[in-house]
Amino acid sequence: MKILVPVKRVVDYNVKVRVRGDGSGVELAGVKMAINPFDEIAVEEAVRLREASMATEVVAVSCGPTACQETLRTALAMGADRAILVETDAELQPLAVAKLLKAVADKEQPDLVICGKQAIDDDANQTGQILAALMGRGQATFASKLVLSGRTLEVTREVDGGLETLALELPAVVTADLRLNEPRYATLPNIMKAKKKPLEVLPAGALGVDVAPRLRHTRHAEPEARKAGIRVADVAELVSRLKNEAKVI
């Protein structure tokens, strides 16, 4: 069984991003980049399935510029077997990414695709769902648990009211939530080994997909900062201010 895991290179989650002075976007120069945390969880889950002999091969794929090779090396160091970079310098929106992934899936014929549920840069939460639709397959989003038996996958999902479990026949698309697993740290020997694992570069243009952006991002701004509050001395002052000043209790 083959698992495809799409991974995205994003600004590290510890970085507080700044908008460029002219509002044209977010300042990325000199900013620390990392694998999207949800994708890291997806890679971990796929590697665990292979380690449990439920899967035979884990293929990581990323769409974007050359620098995404770094992200793919991270996935390889965690245990993915090989990687594919769909290379382009063009701005990619979720629909375009999903179409590129669909083209890769058509070639690779994975039994399972595990995506992260959202990327922490654009927070779109779309790609897995779009890919499932384009593939005409079932989807299980926001997964916190996967149980595979034969060709049936049971996925527990985090929904607003609690948890829900779905059953899907493979092939299917799953998107990973935070509590699916705790990703391992790549060890130095595995980082070294990852450098020798196969990483194929496919020019996005060769996949015959229209990736032109459909949405225009015309202006970026930082939200209004909350005005500084005050420190209260004790609980009595807090209660008095909430009652008399804020009038919220």
Binding site: P94, L95, Q126, Q129, L134, P213
Partner: peptide, 23 residues
């Protein structure tokens, strides 16, 4: 933009071949 809507809407957009705007 709830668990329900986030799960459903991108699938709708994909089938219509349009870009969704989230949240």
């Amino acid at each position: 933009a709830s668990a329900f809507g986030k799960n459903l809407a991108p699938r709708v957009a994909a089938l219509l071949d349009v870009a969704q705007v989230s949240d």
